[in-house]
Write a protein that binds this DNA or RNA. Structure first.
Length: 770
DNA sequence: TTTGCGCGGGTTTTT
DNA sequence: CCCGCGCAAA
């Protein structure tokens, strides 16, 4: 127990308080993972068997990390711990107990794509307007209900929901929920929410089962507790009801998943649910400099909803925070890349690429940084959502395998029945679906008796397909996972189709499938899972729960680019939080209500607290989004940063050029040659697609001198003469902003001339006519 | 049944 | 900008 000596007092408390309910409020960088690791090790040293301990996390990454660290302390025994994400642990239990709910053990897990595609077909079958009932909207509504444990029966029974839906002009929602739930069940499939929902049902209706697991899990631990939704919370509460040894770890200031149903109230109310609750606060930050900690505290202090907590640190004061102001998104990329380059130079070989992270609000923001980093030859990697298992070719092969094991799986069937093309088109599939619904049998049963149900004309191709699947079933039952998958990939024609595709993308797709096959081979050959079956069903069970972030990235020395959400739990010496513009971060979609804004602020807090040594903040004054130019204002969050801790980045080369409006114009001039200047009144009549053709410009009589010293309206002259020389692109939201008459806001406009972007600056007031 | 084209719409985060 | 859809033509 030598490690106890390495802990500070609250940390030690958290480790040795093993009995009874415990809440650990762990500030950012306070050694949370360490505490959890030692706590489990400590339990085991007290003689608790590992299989009596359940540790739940939110991401596979966190689970893996913890498993790894515990193994380091206690050795191989750690393998018998029950540790994993909520979804993976309870899918395991449901595989075991699901029959009690009417599922077989090889039920399919529908990912979001599958779910939405099913909803889409239901909406179509119901003849509803698919613009009104967008799959994503319907899915979110259903998901929200499930996360609050509202079954479709309850949903249709309780008039509150119907009223809400009527208000949203979506009165059919209840019917859709019912149909969706029934279709999933019929397909022997559960979506992500079902895994938790059904666990709740299982524990509610089968007390013997609940009892079994209550006794099994004498100690329950939940990491990132602030991110639990009601469904998850109730599961843990039920499981811990017997022994009351529940330990939750969280930081309300880092709750950033409410869109997924996470309820910050779970952590705020925990005390009420457990009167004898022990509370430990971990407030000493070991990660960041004083400057960073202070700034983070100041920012989060703007939120109303939070638990009392004072994060502090003994670390050095460190560098000031650097604010990078860029003119465009492209400049932002260049400035950040240059800055990374310079930090590395300054570090004299001590600083590596892997010490840097660029964090943004949305995945689509990565582009400008990629380009700039590539130009400077700085290696980077992008942690993008969940792309590998989302790729079409991967999902195709998995769908074949899934369907072979579970022929009720409607979504997989629809995916593979005509992939690769085998002459079974939409109309045939539609007939099958209709017949299946009429006779209340599965699609597969219709296919097996195609001639009986559908007549002989379309029987042939279907029969070939059916025979192929039947043959796959035999193979899968006889061979191991890898050989089965390889067989299916070949015989289905998937591999051949991809192999024949000689385009660059085709190559990549072929390689992706190979990679999946390699992954399966690895699974089969992996000595670590000795004793486990290496069959396909075992491999397939939870691949739907895997995400890209779980791949081994290797230990390459690369700059990391990712969303702030993905950065949770990580730390980097140098962190760039980019795109700090109003409407982008905080996202405009979140601005409608106060809670959402607070969540955006927590997101900002998370981003800041990833930094160990130095934090950079950046924004661009204009950026292209969805092909449209947008004018940006600095994020309101920047105002929440104490200016004493900030310095604006020292200009060098490009930076110099864009640091002031005047020099910026010169810079653009040098770069693009003749520089037309903008006018202070623009008329934009005709709209063609996204770009507006400017064919008339009027200049108002007196441009404000201070704002507009050198008015050289070359292009404006042309326009006045009635020539169409400029394409002025406006986003929809931008037009509002262009209406600047009477305000003192400055505007920056980008014109495109002969297909080339020409930067034009105008500090005059712009007026939009028409 | 498949393919190609033009159009319009949506633009967040993830198990 | 990127997608998915609907429609027309092969």
């Amino acid at each position: 127990m030598s490690y106890l000596a390495t802990l500070n007092e609250p940390q030690r408390q958290a480790v040795v308080t093993t009995e009874g309910p415990l809440m650990i409020i762990a500030g950012a960088g306070s050694g949370k993972t360490r505490v959890l690791t030692y706590r489990i090790a400590y339990l085991m040293e007290q003689g608790i068997e590992p299989y009596n301990i359940l540790a739940l996390t939110f991401t596979n990454k966190a689970a893996k990390e913890m498993q790894h660290r515990i193994e380091k302390v206690v050795g191989n025994e750690a393998r018998s711990l029950w540790m994993g994400t909520f979804h993976s642990v309870f899918s395991k239990i449901l595989r075991f107990e699901g029959e009690k709910l009417g599922y077989t053990s090889n039920f399919t897990i529908y990912d979001t794509d599958d779910s939405q595609s099913l909803i889409k077909s239901i909406v179509k079958e119901f003849n509803l307007d698919d613009k009104l009932y967008k799959p994503s909207v319907v899915f979110n509504r259903i998901s929200g209900a499930k996360n609050r444990l509202i079954s479709w029966q309850e949903y249709n029974r309780n008039p509150i929901y119907a009223a809400e839906d009527r208000e949203q002009q979506k009165p059919e929602m209840g019917r859709l929920y019912k149909a969706y739930a029934e279709r999933c069940f019929k397909a022997n499939a559960m979506d992500f929410d079902d895994l938790l929902f059904n666990t709740n049902v299982l524990f509610r209706d089968h007390l013997d089962v609940l009892n079994k697991y209550q006794h099994k899990f004498r100690y329950v631990m939940v990491d990132e507790f602030q991110d639990t939704n009601l469904s998850q919370y109730l599961i843990t509460r039920k499981l811990a009801a017997q022994h009351l040894n529940i330990c939750v770890v969280g930081d309300d200031a880092q709750s950033i998943y409410s869109f997924r149903g996470a309820d910050i109230q779970n952590i705020l109310n925990f005390e009420k649910d457990y009167p004898n609750l022990n509370i430990v606060r971990l407030e000493q930050n070991y990660r960041s400099t004083k400057t960073i900690v202070n700034v983070a505290n100041k920012v989060i202090a703007n939120n109303q909803k939070q638990l009392r907590k004072e994060v502090w640190t003994d670390n050095d004061t460190g560098d000031l925070i650097e604010l990078i102001k860029a003119a465009t998104d492209g400049d932002e990329g260049r400035l950040v890349a240059t800055s990374i380059f310079e930090e590395k130079m300054r570090g004299g070989g001590q600083i590596h690429n892997k010490d840097f992270a660029i964090l943004y609000r949305t995945n689509s923001q990565s582009r400008s940084f990629e380009e700039a980093l590539r130009k400077l030859n700085i290696k980077y990697r992008i942690v993008a959502g969940m792309s590998f298992y989302q790729r079409k070719e991967i999902k195709d092969l998995l769908a074949y395998l899934r369907f072979t094991l579970n022929t009720n799986d409607e979504e997989s069937l629809k995916r593979i029945i005509n992939t690769p093309r085998r002459g079974i088109g939409d109309s045939t599939v539609a007939k099958i679906v209709i017949t299946a619904n009429e006779k209340n049998i599965s699609l597969w049963e219709v296919i097996c008796k195609a001639t009986t149900y559908l007549g002989s004309r379309i029987g042939k191709q279907l029969e070939d397909f059916m025979l192929m699947i039947k043959e796959f079933m035999v193979t899968v039952s006889k061979k191991d996972a890898y050989e089965s998958a390889l067989h299916v990939a070949n015989k289905s024609g998937l591999l051949k189709e991809l192999f024949d595709d000689k385009t660059v993308e085709g190559r990549a797709r072929y390689e992706n499938v190979q990679e999946l096959l390699n992954g399966i081979k690895e699974f089969v050959d992996n000595p670590n899972t000795e004793g486990q079956l290496k069959t396909l069903p075992v491999f397939l069970q939870d691949v739907a729960l895997l995400t890209n972030a779980d791949e081994n990235d290797g230990d390459d020395d690369k700059v990391t680019l990712m969303t702030i959400h993905a950065s949770k739990g990580l730390e980097f010496k140098f962190v760039y939080v980019v795109g700090l513009e109003e409407d982008l971060f905080p996202s405009q979609m979140m601005l409608s209500n106060r809670n959402d804004l607070e969540e955006e602020r927590r997101l900002f807090y998370v981003a800041i607290t990833r930094a160990e040594r130095k934090l950079f903040l950046s924004y661009a004054l204009q950026r292209y989004r969805f092909g449209n130019l947008r004018f940006c204002e600095p994020s309101r969050f920047l105002d929440e940063i104490d200016s004493r801790y900030v310095r604006t980045m020292k200009p060098s080369s490009i930076r110099e050029a864009i640091s002031t409006p005047q020099t910026m114009t010169n810079f653009a001039h040098k770069k693009y040659g003749e520089m037309p200047q903008a006018t202070n009144a623009t008329r934009m009549p005709a709209t063609r697609g996204n770009s507006t053709v400017v064919n008339k410009v009027t200049t108002t009589s007196n441009p404000t001198p201070t704002e507009n010293p050198n008015f050289v309206p070359t292009a404006v002259e042309k326009l006045k003469a009635g020539q169409q020389v400029l394409h002025l692109k406006f986003g929809k939201g931008t037009i509002k902003r262009m209406d600047l008459e009477g305000t003192d806001k400055k505007a920056i406009v980008v014109f495109e001339q002969h297909g080339e972007k020409v930067l034009i600056l105008s500090f005059a007031k712009l007026m939009v006519l028409g």
